[in-house]
Write a protein that binds this DNA or RNA. Structure first.
Lengths: 114, 114
DNA sequence: ACAACATACAACCATTTGGTTGTATGTCAA
DNA sequence: TTGACATACAACCAAATGGTTGTATGTTGT
């Protein structure tokens, strides 16, 4: 099997995106309702560019999606991605419970093997 | 209310710790069974010190706990911490569902206000 | 007592990250 | 068409991150 790392990159991006409070706050806002980038930027005490980069990180991780409306870009939260992260955690919990039979899938993606 | 940031630091640490594949792999292993730091280190193609630092990051985030047995330090996964992260994500999902009444708690921890 | 083992930690280095300012491009409204 | 707005992105900087090697401190077994 050669799957491993390709998916791991995605997971890195997901947790990495969530590991910043500004991005978590943006995500909360856009899960409730669509917001333009500049509307989001207005909420924080930092430059527009900084907020725009945070939005881009969330977008790359797939936690939000953007759609264009005229000159603005509306961001909405992707609840499916949030659920997929939750699912990773429940896999961990199952592992703890000892219920996982296909341990090899989750455990020991040996770096050394290909 | 003055809570906010104190808890946010904890969440930063949790997601930050999970945003690295080596640490996720370590966490999987120690959720299944206790492992000494050197036993863990043997599993990866990096120095002992690097693995020890990863373990320390997981420890600081509260995702693992350590207990001493003789000269070795045994790490076990803290499933409660894993669940608390899952709970954060389900809060996000609830937010999306529009079910959260206490939105102010989750949303808009305004940086500017104290 | 001593040698080997297990851990912790400091110092160092390269890369990434989170912020800044400035510039370019696209869209709207008059 | 032109000016203002919305976004994107490059270049830059300081701090954090993920790795290294080396050293110090316990603990064990003989």
């Amino acid at each position: 099997m050669a799957t491993a790392t390709i998916e791991e990159d995605r997971i890195d991006a997901l947790f990495g995106a969530l590991a910043d409070r500004t991005r978590r706050d943006i995500l909360r806002r856009v899960l409730v309702a669509e917001h333009s980038v500049s509307a989001l930027a207005a909420a924080y005490d930092m430059s527009f560019a900084a907020v725009q980069k945070h939005v881009a990180v969330l977008d790359r991780a797939g936690l939000i999606a953007k759609r264009r409306r005229g000159r603005e870009q509306l961001a909405r939260g992707e609840v499916g991605a949030v659920r997929s992260v939750a699912s990773l955690l429940s896999d961990l919990e199952e592992l703890w419970r000892g219920r996982i039979t296909r341990i090899d899938d989750l455990l020991a993606e040996d770096i050394t093997k290909e």
